[in-house]
Simulated scan of single mutants.
Amino acid sequence: MTHAFKWLEGLCRLLILAAFLVLSGSVLLQVFARTFLSTAPVWTEELTRFCLIYIGALGAGLALRSGDMVNVDLLCENLPGHGPRLLRLLSAVLTAGFALTLLPAAWAYTVVGQRQTAPSLGWRMDFIHISMLVLFLTLALWALVRVFEMLTGRHDGRPIPNSEEL
Rank of each mutant, 00 (worst) to 15 (best):
W7T: 12
S38R: 09
L58D: 03
Y109C: 00
R124D: 02
T101C: 14
G113A: 00
L87Y: 08
L23R: 05
W43K: 10
R115D: 15
R158G: 03
R124Y: 11
L139H: 04
E165K: 07
L137W: 08
A143Q: 04
R154K: 15
L133A: 08
Q114V: 09
L75Q: 07
N78R: 12
G157I: 01
W123T: 01
T2A: 08
V93Q: 03
L29I: 14
T152K: 08
F5A: 14
T48R: 12
L86W: 04
S163R: 13
L141E: 01
V111D: 06
A60C: 12
F127Y: 15
G113E: 06
C51Q: 08
M125E: 10
A4R: 02
D68E: 13
L102E: 00
P84Q: 06
D68V: 03
E165Q: 12
T117C: 04
T48P: 05
L141G: 00
L79K: 06
G67E: 08
L8S: 02
M125F: 07
F98Q: 04
A106W: 06
R124V: 05
R13Q: 07
Q114F: 12
R13D: 06
D68A: 08
V112G: 05
W123P: 08
L102I: 01
G83Y: 05
Q116R: 10
V147L: 11
L47H: 03
Y54S: 04
H129K: 12
L74Y: 09
L86E: 05
T2D: 11
L74I: 14
L121R: 07
V27G: 01
R13C: 12
D73N: 11
G83F: 06
Q30V: 01
L23Q: 11
T110L: 06
L62K: 05
I130H: 09
F50V: 08
L137Y: 06
L58Y: 07
T48F: 04
G113D: 02
L52E: 06
M69A: 09
L62N: 06
L133F: 13
R158P: 10
R65F: 10
S120I: 00
C51F: 04
R115W: 03
R13V: 15
W123N: 12
I160R: 10
L141A: 02
M150F: 07
R88C: 04
L139Q: 07
A99E: 05
R158V: 03
V70C: 10
A40S: 15
P104G: 03
R13W: 09
